[in-house]
Design a protein around this nucleic acid. Structure first.
Length: 226
DNA sequence: GCCAACGTTGGC
DNA sequence: GCCAACGTTGGC
């Protein structure tokens, strides 16, 4: 699998082909196991507050630098999103069950941080919002796509994607290093980022944030870079 | 169902 | 490019 990040970190793009990513491949497990994973996830403290009736916030990873996966470039940066028609793209290529389940939980107008991963400067670069809820990821059927999944059947689709629209750039880049500093001190003090999924579920390309985590990160925009 | 081998993610 | 972390695969 690839990794997409819009891939999951990676991503692909929207109408085009490529993109995305997000990781991929996986599949293997069936839905049953996906459900198990999901439920165990929700029991962890990091995900506790993401109850279904609350408004949720998200962090979605994508790779801003070119990288070939099966000969296809999986790069998808926030600049690439801005360049799309209506600044909207489909987030295809996610091939990890936990990440997929979060995609399926996304609701219209919910906001997500756009995170640049696997590059020189990992961190949060902007904000986007969900403009189309989960629907089948077409790349699972495309034989030449790096995220092609021959085990997905038309009558029982494995992979989903959502459409996202650019909202704005962060007022300043919020680096992974800075977030990590807060995460570590908050673990000791019981601060707001102590359970942030970026650190507690490090490889998850689509992750939920609590309102408190989201607001705290937004408040960092007003500070001097640390 | 266990678990070793293997593959991927993604920071550094 | 290295490699730690962790998810997946597949034999048994």
């Amino acid at each position: 699998m690839p990794r997409p990040r819009k891939r999951p970190a990676g991503a692909a793009g929207p109408e085009k082909k490529g993109q995305s990513g997000k990781r991929t491949k996986s599949e293997n497990l069936g839905e049953a196991s996906a459900k198990v994973e999901n439920s165990s996830l929700q029991k962890t403290s990091a995900f506790k507050k993401c109850g279904r009736n609350l408004s949720n916030y998200w962090l979605m990873k994508s790779e801003p630098e070119s990288r070939l996966e099966k000969g296809v470039d999986v790069k998808f940066s926030i600049e690439d999103l801005k360049a799309q028609p209506k600044q909207t793209a489909c987030w295809d290529g996610v091939r990890n069950y936990q990440a997929r389940n979060f995609l399926r939980a996304m609701k219209l107008e919910e906001e997500a941080f756009f995170y640049h991963s696997n590059g020189k400067e990992p961190g949060i670069v902007g904000l986007m919002k969900i403009v189309k809820e989960a629907y089948p990821d077409h790349t699972q059927f495309e034989k030449n796509n790096p995220h092609y999944d021959p085990s997905s059947q038309e009558d029982n689709l494995k992979w989903s994607m959502v459409d996202v629209q650019f909202v704005r750039m962060m007022k300043r880049f919020i680096s992974l290093a800075e977030l990590k500093t807060y995460h570590q001190s908050h673990k000791a003090t019981g601060g707001l980022l102590k359970d942030m999924a970026l650190f507690t579920h490090q490889r998850l390309s689509i992750q939920p944030l609590t309102q408190e985590e989201f607001d705290f990160i937004l408040s960092l925009e007003e500070n001097e870079p640390s």
